[in-house]
Simulated assay, not measured.
Amino acid sequence: MNKELILEKTKAFVKDKLYGESSGHDWFHIERVYNLSTYLCEKEEADSFIVEMTALLHDIDDWKFSEGNETVTTTTENYLKSVDVDIKSINKIIKIIKTMSFKGGVVNSIQDSIEGKIVQDADRLDAIGAIGIARTFAYSGSENRLMYDPSIKPLDFKTLDDVKNKDNHTVNHFYEKLLKLKDLMNTDTAKHIAEERHRFMELFLDEFYYEWNFNKKSL
């Protein structure tokens, strides 16, 4: 198994699939997660091939684009077989992908391998901070969601069907997911990076509410 060749083929495959995707899950998201994953992998004792392949493929069968089916990994599995990845590695990659997403915090997303922890951290880091804010609004725009409605409060999800509820707005997503991610990082390096990105989101929300509620009488 020529791992370097497989990685290059995989980059081309994923870029072809996701380039130009408009919801924030595009090729550039994958590239950032890949770069973060390789950085975190340097700090940990992990299988770099599993980390890199998982980072590249983690959104190919994303449940948000598979008609809401959070268990489908058919495209990913077929691709891995087509480039002759060994079955043991395929099983590791698929297992990580199936338990990586936050999904409102209502499903099992605990990683039992260091490789899974690394890629999950990288994916979650790209969901917060300045990039995370931009991706949140991009995704909500693709779903025709309101930017903000102060009468609709953050939801307390109980089931995955609750998570898929369209009757929500973008700002609630910060409270339902993004502001929770800092405390869910697995590795010490990711925890350190998350602190700064978390604080940036808090500052953004402070400014957002200030501008939303602007009243010249208060000046």
Rank of each mutant, 00 (worst) to 15 (best):
I94Q: 00
E31A: 06
K98N: 14
D62N: 12
H173A: 13
D156R: 13
F137K: 12
R124E: 02
H25A: 04
S109H: 15
D84C: 09
G104H: 04
V107M: 08
G104L: 01
I128F: 10
D86F: 06
I131K: 11
L155Q: 15
T159L: 02
P150C: 04
D112W: 00
T187M: 10
K180L: 15
K98F: 07
E115I: 01
S37V: 00
I110Y: 13
E44D: 08
K15M: 08
S218G: 00
V33Q: 00
A122P: 10
G105I: 00
E21M: 05
G24F: 09
L146M: 15
E45F: 11
K164S: 00
T54S: 09
E77I: 01
I193T: 04
L80P: 02
M201H: 05
A134M: 11
N108Q: 12
L184R: 13
S48C: 01
N186C: 04
S66P: 01
P150V: 05
H29Q: 03
A12Y: 05
F49R: 04
F102P: 06
V83R: 13
D112P: 03
K11I: 01
I152A: 02
E176H: 05
N78S: 07
D59R: 00
T75Q: 14
D167I: 02
F174L: 02
Y39E: 13
M147P: 01
H198I: 00
I50L: 06
I97K: 04
L18S: 10
I30K: 08
K164T: 00
E21L: 07
Y39R: 11
F28E: 14
E8I: 01
Y148R: 10
P150A: 05
T75G: 01
N215K: 14
N35W: 07
D62V: 12
I133D: 05
F137C: 09
M100V: 00
K217T: 12
S82L: 06
I114Y: 10
K43H: 13
K15R: 15
K11V: 03
F102D: 01
L155H: 14
V14F: 03
K216W: 11
L184A: 03
D183H: 12
N35Y: 04
L203A: 11
A127K: 12
N165A: 04
F157D: 03
I6V: 09
G132K: 14
H29I: 03
R145P: 05
R32S: 09
T54R: 08
L184K: 13
Y19E: 14
G141W: 11
K177L: 05
S23E: 08
F208I: 04
L160I: 15
A55I: 02
D16K: 15
D123N: 11
D84S: 15
Y34D: 00
L178W: 02
D156G: 05
F208E: 10
F214V: 04
E21R: 15
T75E: 14
D59Y: 02
V106E: 03
V171H: 06
H173W: 15
G116V: 08
A138Y: 12
K117F: 09
E77M: 07
N165T: 01
N144L: 09
L56D: 03
T76G: 04
L125V: 07
S140R: 13
S82M: 06
D123A: 05
D86K: 07
S109D: 15
V107I: 06
T38D: 11
D206T: 11
D84F: 14
A138C: 06
S22R: 14
